[in-house]
Write a protein that binds this DNA or RNA. Structure first.
Length: 456
RNA sequence: GUGGCUGUAGCUUAGCGGCAAAGCACCGCUCUGUGGCAGCGGGGAUCAUGGGUUCGAAUCCCAUCAGCCACCCCA
């Protein structure tokens, strides 16, 4: 768990602003959902045998005996709300988006937190392939709008109930005479969650997976046609994609189209430049003591390891045509995706993306002296606020000295000073901080004067 | 869930069984209504939390929590 401090807020505001704009443009309505829900909801929706449900949920029992969990994702909640509020009777597709914290009890590391934020999007009620493409296109647009470059979508189809069983059978057949070679976990996976063996990274398992049958070859005509049109639509709108026959989702509810967005490797040049800088730093330090020669060597070696950022999915999602029915609703096709906001922020930082600074950075500081100055200051502060001129003050402080020091630290362009004398005269001192030049201005003209000065 | 590393003042860290330190930051004074520089002074730490070992624990041990790295997995 981590705090999002003021100096990072502009990333968050930026992402929220850009993405909500696009989602509203596409006709999605916002929905806010509770953080705590019945454990059973997630077990049913996400799947009993998934890691998320098995070991990553924060579950607890209330005094009344209810089994509750902090939500590990937002799709289940969204569909629960959809059913609970009778949205089946609304014109379809019902398009909902939500944003908020989700919780997974996993070992944390870069880009992975126990509490993180998702931007979640669902389109309920359409089965056509064009919607798959539209959702992927929109995800692409969102990433583009927030300033992430070199994003590529990995895509696959995992079929549905009518063809996946045959594929799983073929997959099991393929592994029948290889069981001895693959790792123990994969042996379990073959029984509980066979698709999973495909993305295991153990050398032997990768080997065994190489010539494994591919889902695309087992798709029935409906699924195959669907997948083919999704790709055709993507070509049409120009979203770069990568067919990944081993892409398998960790949540049970997916059918047909699954996808995830990753960022392609950074340009090599940049990496080399960074390494050079680090090496130069190390060399500069060397003069201080030769005894730590070994330590220096280690320092040089380290960055090479660190440059290899794992390719984390920023957005991932897919179609889930059976989930609404599974949760007790009528058979309703649907598709959705979720963005990991921390990951998006992390990539923006790594890319050194140029994010607009949404902070209102006050250029004006208001200093006051004496009880009377303070009173007038309070009034003037409100006048400035009404004119939308952001002002910082430190009313609680008495000495002009410390107030000016603060004004300086804040980088104020001008300081307004009201002391006893000015308060009695009905004037204000306007001090230009860079030059120290001051002039006395009648109180009633000060707002206009400041406005003019700031425009320059 | 597995293996490894880390947690001392707001920040960066030193101390590694015997009085909790330094630099930066903050506040103040020198300078009584005028900032940046300098000098001097001050406040601020239940040493992540809870247990244990010990005459004595920031220091050693165990557990928990949080973070970092590699897995697993995922956003």
């Amino acid at each position: 768990m981590h705090d999002i401090l003021p100096d990072k807020q502009h990333y968050w505001k930026h992402i929220q602003k850009k993405s909500s704009q696009i989602l509203e443009d596409y006709g999605f309505d916002k929905i806010d959902l509770p953080i705590v829900e019945n454990t059973g909801l997630f077990v049913r929706a996400v799947g009993e045998a998934t890691d998320v449900v098995e070991k990553e949920m924060y579950s607890f029992k209330t005094k009344g005996g209810d089994e509750l969990s902090l939500r590990p994702e937002l799709t289940a909640n969204t569909l629960r709300a959809y059913l609970e509020h009778g949205m089946q009777v609304m014109p379809h597709p019902v398009r909902l988006w939500s944003y908020g914290p989700v919780f997974r009890h996993d070992n944390p590391q870069a880009g992975r937190y126990r509490q993180f934020h998702q931007l979640n999007v669902e389109s309920i009620g359409d089965q056509d392939a064009v919607v798959d493409a539209e959702m992927i296109f929109m995800a692409h647009k969102v990433l583009e709008a927030i300033g992430l470059k070199r994003m590529i979508v990995k895509i696959n189809s995992i079929g549905d109930d009518s063809c996946r069983p045959q594929y799983i059978k073929a997959l099991k057949d393929h592994y029948r005479n290889k069981v001895k070679k693959i790792c123990n976990k994969c042996k379990d996976r073959l029984k509980t969650n066979p698709l999973r063996v495909l993305d295991c990274v153990e050398a032997n398992c990768v080997d065994a997976a190489k010539d494994a049958p591919q889902m695309v070859d087992y798709l029935d005509s409906d699924c195959k046609k669907h997948f083919k049109s999704v790709l055709e639509f993507l070509d049409e709108v120009g979203v770069p994609y990568l067919l990944d026959p081993h892409l398998v989702r960790g949540l049970d509810y997916y059918t047909k189209t699954v996808f995830e967005f990753v960022q392609e490797e950074e340009e090599k040049k940049e990496e080399e430049q960074q390494q050079k800088e680090i090496k130069e730093e190390v060399v500069a330090e060397e003069g201080e003591g030769k005894a730590e020669g070994d330590a220096v060597k280690e320092k040089v070696d380290e960055p090479e390891e660190k440059q290899k950022h794992p390719q984390l999915a920023v957005i991932s999602g897919g179609r889930y045509d059976k989930l609404v029915a599974l949760l007790g609703g009528p058979a309703t096709p649907a598709i959705g995706w979720a963005m990991g906001v921390e990951r998006a922020v992390m990539l923006l930082e790594r890319n050194k993306a140029n994010i607009p600074d949404y902070k209102t950075n006050p250029k004006i500081f208001l200093a006051q002296l004496s009880e009377m100055g303070r009173r007038k200051g309070l009034v003037l502060f409100e006048e400035m606020r009404k004119s939308s001129i952001p002002v910082k003050t430190s009313f609680g402080r008495d000495s002009i000295k410390s107030q000016l020091r603060i004004a300086d630290r804040l980088g104020s362009l001008y300081t307004l000073i009201i002391g006893q004398k000015e308060a009695l005269e009905g004037t204000v001192i306007l001090r230009e901080m860079s030059t120290g030049v001051q002039e006395t201005i009648p109180m009633e003209k000060i707002v206009d004067t400041v406005k003019k000065r700031l425009k320059k």
